[in-house]
Each structure stands twice: as structure tokens, then as C-alpha cells.
Amino acid sequence: MTGTLAHLTLAFGLLGNIVSFMVFLAPIPTFYKVYKKKSTEGFQSAPYVVGLFSAMLWIYYALLKTNVLLLITINSVGCFIETLYICFFLFYAPKKARMESLKLIVLLIVVGFGLIVGLTQFFASGVTRGVIVGWICLVFSLCVFVAPLGVLRQVIKTKSVEYMPILLSVALTLSAVMWFFYGLLLRDFNIAIPNVLGFTFGIIQMILYYMYKNKKPISNEKITEFEAKKYPVGEMEGKRFQERVDHKTIDVVKLTALISSDILPVVTKLKENGHDAGHVAVEPQAHPNVPNHIIEVTA
């Protein structure tokens, strides 16, 4: 029986490593877009900094235990990948975003993780140290799994799943299942408990995805509703074009009237003095209201 449990634990741990590795690689398309456009375009570094902090916490916890080697392997890989993402982000981020990211790194990685390690090393020992760090990992993991609530609210509000990729949701759900059973078989509830919440939110995300994947986003339904009811699409475009043409025609009429009002008195005066108006070059006076350009109207 003990051998069977050991094999099951190893199997779930290896599957957890594989699925978690896929989750770590999920942001690659995002960073490919950043590379192509040479700009972070409003993307945030917080998920990657938080991911690095989480991986470092779990490595520290695993080092205090004796039987969770597979927890060390995947989180070591995670630390490496998240560090690459952060460096890539800092390279292409504008100055303001770069400074905000550096502040978050200092606050979370340097100060936060440094305090956890320092305080537990100096004020706790043996099993107590592992218990304290385990509780910190548990609470932090629960906070990370609660974070997608904002995405769920946005999906329900907009009826759009644009910002909730289904493949990532499936991968996170599978990862939660694997690590739950890995922690359960090890009787390590600091690993198992947070993944119950992760599995629950993963299922909710997938349900919402299939509910709203064929729905039309609300934002697209609010476009000129009144005009759409009043005019068909073709008539609306024709109406707008006619308004532009009428506006340009009025400008030309005004321009002609203004120029005529300046030239006509000069021509009349020349005729009265006996000059031939047809052979006289007349320069119109500058008028403050004449446009600086001549508008050409084309049908």
C-alpha cells in the first residue's frame, strides 16, 4: 500500500510539473507582441513579479521539508522563466512603467521575501519554521487564486471572453487538480487546500467561457442606436456624405461672394475711368474671413 501511494504521489507530482510548465509558458504570445511592437503597450508587470515571488516562497517552503522535491524542480523553472519575463518587460517598458515595476520588485521580492526569510530564520526553528512558512504560502496562494474574480466580473458585465483565454483556464484547472492530489497524498494541506479554490475558480471560468463565447459584446450594441433605428445603414452613409458636400458647397459660395465683393468695385471704377476691364489684372484685397485654401468639391 505504501509503495502504491508513493507511485501515485510521484505521478501527480510529475503531471503537476508538466502542466505548471505549460502555464509558465502561457505569456509567450503576449511577449511576442511586445517584441514586434517594441513596446509594452499598457501591459502590467505585476503578474510576473507576483509569479516570481510565489515561486520563491514555495522553494523556501520545500527546502524546509524533506519529501517535496518535485515542488522545488517546477518552482526553480518558474523562477527562471518569470525572471526572463520581467527582464524582457523592463527592456521594452516606457520609463514610468519601468520605474513602477522596479518599485514593485523591491517591495515584494527584496523587502517582502527578505523579511519572511529573515524573521523565520531568527525567530523560529525546526518544525515551527516550516509551519509558519507553510501558512504564509497557503494564504498567499489563496490570494493569487482569488485574483481572477476581477476577470470573471468583467466577463459577466461585458458578455465577452476576450480577456479570458480558455486554454489558460484549462491549464490552471488541471494544474490545481494535480497539485491538490500531490498535497493530499503527502498529507501536506498547505499544498492541497489552495488548489481546491484554484480548481473551483477554474471550473467557473470554463463554464462562463462556454456561456458567453458566442455572445455579442455589449460594447458593440451601443453604437448609434437611435440613428440605426431612424435610418438604414446605406441611408445613414448617404446622409452623412450629403451633409459633407453641402458644407463644402456653402464654403465655396461664401468664398465666391467675398472675392466678388472685393473685385466688383474695382472693375466698376476702372470702367468709369475709361479703362478696358478685360485687359486689367486685378488683385483682390485680403479679406480676414477668406479661408486660406480653396475647397474643391467632387461628386
Rank of each mutant, 00 (worst) to 15 (best):
3 G>C: 04
5 L>I: 03
6 A>P: 07
9 T>D: 11
14 L>N: 04
19 V>E: 02
22 M>K: 01
26 A>S: 09
27 P>M: 00
31 F>P: 01
33 K>I: 03
35 Y>L: 10
37 K>F: 10
37 K>V: 10
38 K>R: 11
40 T>V: 15
40 T>L: 06
42 G>H: 03
46 A>P: 11
47 P>L: 00
47 P>Y: 06
48 Y>N: 05
49 V>I: 04
51 G>N: 01
53 F>Q: 00
53 F>R: 00
58 W>N: 06
59 I>A: 06
59 I>Q: 05
69 L>G: 10
74 I>G: 07
75 N>S: 08
75 N>L: 08
76 S>T: 13
79 C>S: 05
80 F>P: 05
83 T>H: 03
87 C>L: 13
88 F>T: 09
89 F>V: 01
91 F>H: 07
92 Y>N: 01
98 R>N: 05
104 L>G: 01
106 V>S: 03
107 L>V: 03
107 L>G: 12
109 I>R: 02
111 V>R: 01
111 V>E: 07
121 Q>C: 05
125 S>D: 09
127 V>F: 12
128 T>D: 15
128 T>Q: 06
133 V>W: 08
140 F>L: 15
141 S>I: 14
144 V>F: 14
148 P>V: 06
149 L>N: 02
151 V>Y: 11
151 V>W: 10
151 V>D: 13
152 L>N: 11
153 R>Y: 11
155 V>K: 00
157 K>W: 09
159 K>H: 06
159 K>W: 01
161 V>M: 06
164 M>Y: 02
164 M>F: 06
167 L>V: 07
167 L>K: 11
174 L>A: 08
179 W>G: 07
180 F>W: 02
183 G>A: 04
184 L>G: 07
191 I>D: 00
204 I>H: 00
205 Q>K: 01
206 M>W: 05
207 I>P: 04
208 L>F: 02
208 L>P: 01
209 Y>F: 11
210 Y>S: 04
213 K>Y: 14
217 P>I: 00
219 S>F: 09
221 E>H: 00
223 I>Y: 11
224 T>Y: 15
225 E>A: 08
226 F>Q: 12
228 A>L: 11
230 K>A: 11
233 V>T: 11
235 E>V: 02
236 M>R: 05
237 E>T: 13
238 G>Y: 00
238 G>N: 09
239 K>R: 13
242 Q>Y: 12
244 R>S: 15
244 R>H: 14
249 T>A: 14
253 V>F: 12
254 K>R: 06
254 K>L: 13
257 A>H: 15
265 P>Y: 14
267 V>G: 14
268 T>E: 15
271 K>L: 14
279 H>W: 12
279 H>L: 12
281 A>R: 15
285 Q>R: 09
286 A>R: 06
287 H>T: 02
287 H>P: 02
288 P>T: 11
289 N>R: 05
291 P>Y: 07
296 E>S: 08
297 V>Y: 03
298 T>F: 07
298 T>D: 12
